[in-house]
Design a protein around this nucleic acid. Sequence first.
DNA 1: TCACATTTGTCCGTATGTATC
DNA 2: AGATACATACGGACAAATGTG
Lengths: 243, 243
Amino acid sequence: MRRVFVPVRSKRTFEEVSSQIKKLILDGVLQPGDKLPSEGTLGKQFHVGRQTVREALRILELSGFISVQKGFGGGSVVRNNVLKRTSGLLLDALQMEKVGLKEFTAARLLIEKGILNEAIDRADGRDIRDLQRNVAESKALIKRGKFATDINVEFHSLLARASRNRVYVLFERTINDMHLDLRRRRSPNFAIDQAAVQAHEEILDALIEKDRDRANRLLEKHLLAVSKHYRRREINFLTRNGC
Amino acid sequence: MRRVFVPVRSKRTFEEVSSQIKKLILDGVLQPGDKLPSEGTLGKQFHVGRQTVREALRILELSGFISVQKGFGGGSVVRNNVLKRTSGLLLDALQMEKVGLKEFTAARLLIEKGILNEAIDRADGRDIRDLQRNVAESKALIKRGKFATDINVEFHSLLARASRNRVYVLFERTINDMHLDLRRRRSPNFAIDQAAVQAHEEILDALIEKDRDRANRLLEKHLLAVSKHYRRREINFLTRNGC
DNA sequence: TCACATTTGTCCGTATGTATC
DNA sequence: AGATACATACGGACAAATGTG
């Protein structure tokens, strides 16, 4: 016998408003691109004040369900940025827990390997072309002596997309956000960008040839090299003031 | 050449307020349990109105950085619920994307296998005892003809904790939330609970004996059986109105 | 370039509900 | 029961942004 009594906690008004709107979005009644009424109009329709509406909109905005713009023709528009927003919050969560480099690397290895194996099975011509273009662009940057950090990180996002699994995409985005946060804490390093693009090229070759073992070996080597580099630099990972 | 121009977007006042408080929390200046000043006091200190403060607090509350209580002695208290909140938002994100059972199962397999392998290396006596107690309690429930869904789900959380990797813990929590959401859509099923606890017991045995191959085989069989059960029942996974 | 309308952003004053002492 | 301190909620007002004519 479980859950006979349901917890009685009276919802605050703005919570009621936000979950009503959220339900409409999840049910597909409101779709991305649809414009919500203005704050004042919403207030009248819900019979609540404008302040209440605003707090509800803040929640929906932070969750990525809507975006808000000021000015003439502005207002709230339904979006599908929930995934994007969430990865930012995940980063906060892991910062709060002061997650270390070892934990991050282990998780990254697992996720990226899973992605790679699915991508080998599922990648189509377009995926391959995008990955090749990514590597080519990165190599061009490197050749001109420029940093290729962002574009190298994007390689992994493209792989995730090729896996055709949106759960992977979400997890990978989180991992990538953590990674970018890590990169941001150190001075740009050309050698690591150079090594990364070379590794990516080799991994992509193995993927195209569907050589699973080689691809996994290369990926593991690549990720461990990156991790080792951070450890050598003694980066305080995911902490702000070194504590 | 990338990112020469940095996006200029003037922060709204409530965003400025919330990120200042958030930074204090992440830096450890404000710690869980600390009480924030009242909304009015905060407004005076930041030189902003109370509504602005309230919108900032809404953001922090949704993110899990604070909790707010009404009444005498109430107010905002610093918390560490970020991880907990985030998994709820992840669920929203995946609902929004209408993720299917196949994607869910693939991701679940990957994460849980990773967790199991780390747990085999890292679980200490206390972890083992907790897992054993979980299985024993579940078996007792089953024996008395009662459902053991919640406690069976908890088995996987305990495994995640034993992996000593908080990134895994977070991902596993997300997977578990999705799973519970799935279970909630169907009538309780005794057979699946019964099969699950048996699988858990076998997996735990293999874990204690550090028999990696057997543990992985058993886990895969267990998770695929669960997935198969849902597919047979033609559950509309992670969608609300069957579309 | 200059109003103008619309909508969000922000502030203030006030009243109510709620939980603790 | 009453006083207190706080969040919650409402309505009014003005500022700022933004597109239109």
